[in-house]
Structures are given as C-alpha cells and as structure tokens.
C-alpha cells in the first residue's frame, strides 16, 4: 500500500472541501476501497474519513424514505420501515456479502462498489481500461464467466474503449427497481441524480463509472412511496449459498390489482455495468394478468440485446428463467429477506 494522508472530516462541508483535493477519496466502510488499495488498484493520495458524519439516519419523508449515505447495510436491511415497506431492498441487502461485511459497508459506498472483474483487481494483468485507460481489455479474450452480456463496449481486446465488466452490488439492483434517487453534495451545491443516470455504462470511457463530479459526496438515497411492499422478490443465482457475487440477480416488484398488474419494477443484476432496467419490459406487463407467459415477455425484452462471450453464454437463459421465477414469487407476497 502506498503512503496516503488521512483526515477525519468533522462535517459534510469539511469533507467536501477535503474531497476536492487532487487524489483524495472518501473513506466510508472501507470494505472495497481498502482491499483495492492493498492490491494497488487504488492509490489515493488522501483519504477523507466520513464515518463520523451525521449521515446515519433513516427518515420517512412526505411520500417515501430518505436513507443517509452512512447507514450501514446491516442497519438498513433490518430497519423496521424498510422491512415493512421495501422488503425488496432488505432482501437484496441480506443476499450480499457476509454479515461482517454488511456491518461495515455503507449505503453510499455500496453505490460506488467497483467491479469484481479479475482483470481489474489484479494489477499483474497489463490490460484493463478501467484501471489504466487505453490499455485494452484482457477479459474479452480471457476468463469471462462473470462478465457482462448487456450494455458492454466491445471493440476488441486492444481497444481503449472495450469493457465487459459488471457492477457487483445487490443493493443497487433493488434500488433501481424501486426508482431510487441519489442525493449528492459538492462544491457547487446539492443535486439529485436519478438511479438510472447514476451508474454509467462503459460507452467510450470505461473509467468513468458514475455521474458524480470530482469531489462530490453522496449524502443520501431517497426512495419514493412504497408500491411493492406487498409483492416483491429479489432472486440471486450464485455459485454458493452465501458470500458470492450474483451470476445473475433479479429485483422484481409488482403492484397488483385483482389478478392484473398495475405497475412493475424490474431490474437485472450481474449482467451489465449497472443494474439493467428497461421501461418497455415493465410497460409490457401493465394491465396484463400476472402469468408466466407475460413474465417471459418482459424477460425477452430485457435480454433482447444480449451478447455473450466464451464462458458466460449461460447468463441469458439463467436471467430469463430468473425473471419469470422472481415475478412469479413476487405475486405470492414479499419475503422479509433471505438468510445469507
């Protein structure tokens, strides 16, 4: 690990000021950043510790809820209001990582998790456009079982634009389906970013991962009024029953009226560099009966542009089945969260 400066921010204003310095990074739970520093993937000049900021509240507001950026994943998953009104989020959180990691990991930090692409996390591989812009992508011709099938940029292994990484978060998949918004604060003031706009697909700049401006601090996440409290399910397919990233995951929320669907929130995880959500896939369900056939149509829309690689062709079929299963389970109610 390279030497770095450390300072504990006394207020959001102080944090934002310090975070503006060249090479500075905010330190929240540290469950991802510190690992990457040890692996020399990240080498910030300074860490601005925001663990003591007053960003730990979960507050009901006029129609929804506001979650402070420093609310720990465990606290969020087990909060009475979240369990009751947003069980999809609770379930997604509890399916991620391990209890120890969830006790440390923060809401804001989870949004900023970096990809688990092997070629990104191991600096011994010379090609990764995220780590070294312009160096190429070793994953395209490498071992790409955990990689993207949607929204990736593939112009060949030597192109400076290619990136087929995935976003590893479970929490974000649920937040995408729930229409969350991200509140940020920077030197120029506060702004709110819709969830769909927060994470960036690789496009031609794989190293730009979010809509955050340099030095901006995530201060909270807001969820709109709960529509899916009664009917939702987070399904996660993975290589073991806990402490494994999703091969594919599905966040499914349904608002039912009679036997018909009034509205739906549907997002895929493990398939792209951001939670994969398509308005058409949700619109096709509206006004329709909650049947496997209709769910399959939504899945087909979500997956229509899928492009697979040597080791991840299975993801299309797994995601398709996952969507149908998650929506089917959502029609049956809402579990309070899987044990993980």
């Amino acid at each position: 690990m390279k030497d770095f400066a450390y300072q504990r921010a006394a207020s959001s204003e102080a944090a934002i000021h310090a975070g503006n310095a060249r090479g500075a990074k905010f330190l929240a739970g540290g469950t991802n950043l510190v690992d990457l520093m040890k692996y020399r993937v990240e080498s910030p000049a300074a860490l601005v510790d925001i663990n003591h900021l007053d960003l730990t509240q979960i507050t009901p507001d006029q129609d929804g809820v506001r979650i402070g950026a420093m609310v720990r994943n465990s606290d969020l998953a087990n909060h009475a209001l979240i369990r009751q009104s947003y069980p999809l989020l609770s379930q997604a959180l509890l399916s991620g990582a391990s209890p120890q990691l969830r006790n440390m990991a923060s809401t804001g930090g989870n949004l900023l998790q970096r990809t688990r692409c092997y070629y990104f996390t191991d600096v011994s591989f010379p090609a990764c456009n995220k780590r070294e812009p312009g160096s190429g992508c070793a994953a395209v011709k490498g071992y790409n079982r955990i990689h993207a099938i949607l929204g990736q940029t593939d112009k060949g292994s030597t192109s400076g634009e290619t990136c087929i990484a995935t976003h590893p978060s479970d929490m974000c998949v649920a937040m995408a389906a729930l229409d969350a918004k991200v509140e940020v604060e920077g030197a120029k003031g506060k702004r709110t970013i819709s969830f769909a706009d927060f994470h960036k697909l690789p496009g031609s700049t794989p190293w730009i991962e979010t809509a955050l401006h340099p030095g901006e601090l995530i201060v909270g996440v807001t969820l709109p009024a709960a529509k899916y409290a009664k009917n939702s399910y987070y399904l996660k397919a993975r290589d073991r029953n806990s402490y494994a990233f999703a091969l594919i995951s599905v966040a499914a929320g349904l608002e039912l009226e009679g036997g018909n669907i009034k509205s739906a929130g549907l997002a895929l995880g493990g398939v792209a560099l951001k939670p994969w959500r398509m308005p058409e896939a949700e619109h096709v369900l509206v006004g329709k009966p909650a049947t496997p056939e209709n769910f399959a149509r939504a899945a087909d829309i979500l997956l229509k542009d899928a492009k697979t690689y040597e080791h991840n062709a299975f993801k299309v079929e797994m995601a398709r089945r996952g969507v149908v299963r998650a929506l089917t389970l959502a029609t049956q109610g809402a579990p309070e969260g899987a044990n993980a």
């Binding site: 092997y118 070629y119 191991d122 011994s124 591989f125 011709k141 490498g142 071992y143 079982r145």
Partner: peptide, 10 residues
C-alpha cells in the same frame, strides 16, 4: 481458473 493468454490464475 487459468487465463488462456497470460497463464495466470484469475
């Protein structure tokens, strides 16, 4: 898993 180009365990 061994990378087929670099021969390294990924």
């Amino acid at each position: 898993h061994i990378d087929s180009v670099y021969g390294r365990v990924v």
